[in-house]
């Protein structure tokens, strides 16, 4: 606790046990996906992967429109991420650095909306989307997520301390309009926080389930909907279904392993300021 001594071995032991527990379900799903369905009936399951992963993965693409689902998810999550990062940085910049009437009250309102379970409004939202003729189409899952309260909050907290007022004043003296100040000064200064917000948003959007389930068609799914449909057969073929979950998790896992350090730093920084 005092930070004077190196951690003792039992601390490492407990942490290692926790991490094994964290990794195991991923490993298990890959294990099942790499064998055939006969494995599930064995008394003592094998602990090493078999050679059937690619065969099972190919069956995933035959069973559901998985390419289409991947394409849809990339379009949806990509658009949502770019838009959220831009619009949240813009609003965060205004709340952090610009003076205007009602700023504090409006910012408190943004924080308060974090506690509103907007998911419960899906019924009117669905009625509206159906009226617009958007039900079944990607804009229905993109548009409601173009900007987020947590993103505005996060970017504001970051820019308050990371962007010196003198820099904005200097740009203004040089004749920059507000929008140019944002583009040339605030946006570059917010890069670390924007990168975290982007990764966070991408993961949230990639994993979103309830709203896409309500508003999209099975023929035009996102990855999560395709996965759910894989499982909904009369008989669940787990080597097929878990090949699907493995395929759907790999992209996110790669992002996470590459950028894990920033994600961890981002979550912890947000926690202290929040």
């Amino acid at each position: 606790m005092t930070g004077l001594r190196r951690a003792r071995f039992w601390v490492y032991g407990l942490l290692a046990a926790f991490i094994i527990g964290s990794v195991f379900p991923f490993y298990w799903s890959f294990l099942v996906a790499s064998r055939d369905s006969g494995m599930m009936t064995q008394k003592v399951p094998p602990l090493l992967p078999g050679g059937n992963f690619f065969a099972n993965a190919a069956r995933v693409f035959d069973t559901v429109p998985f390419w289409r689902a991947l394409g849809n998810s990339v379009i949806v999550s990509g658009t949502v991420t770019i838009s959220t990062v831009l619009l949240c940085t813009l609003a965060g910049f205004a709340f952090a650095k610009l003076r205007f009437r009602g700023r504090n009250g409006l910012f408190l309102f943004v924080i308060a909306t974090l506690a509103v379970p907007t998911q419960l409004g899906i019924i009117p939202l669905y009625i509206a989307m159906a009226d617009f003729g958007w039900a079944g189409h990607l804009p229905a899952v993109i548009i409601p997520n173009l900007v987020s309260a947590i993103g505005v909050f996060w970017m504001r907290q970051y820019l308050v301390s990371a962007l010196p007022d003198e820099l904005i004043e200097a740009a203004r003296m040089d004749g920059c309009s507000m929008l140019r100040v944002f583009w040339h000064v605030a946006l570059p200064a917010s890069r670390p926080a924007a990168a975290f917000l982007g990764m966070f948003t991408f993961m949230m959007s990639w994993n979103d389930f309830l709203w896409p389930l309500v508003v999209l068609d099975p023929e035009n799914p996102t990855v999560q909907l395709a996965l759910e449909r894989l499982q909904s057969g009369y008989y669940v073929d787990y080597s097929l279904v878990l090949a699907g979950t493995t395929l759907a998790t790999i992209p996110i896992l790669v992002v996470f392993v590459l950028l894990g350090r920033q994600i961890v730093a981002g979550i912890m920084a947000g926690a202290v300021k929040g």
Binding site: L4, L15, I19, V23, P25, L227, T249, I252, V264
Partner: peptide, 26 residues
């Protein structure tokens, strides 16, 4: 006072990448 503190933190956060659907199925 851990060695490689970030590595442990990343490991602990790992389940967070699983989608709820994948998680439910697994």
């Amino acid at each position: 006072n851990l060695r490689a503190p970030t590595g442990w933190r990343i490991g602990v956060l790992l389940p967070y990448v699983a989608s709820l659907v994948a998680l439910g199925i697994i």
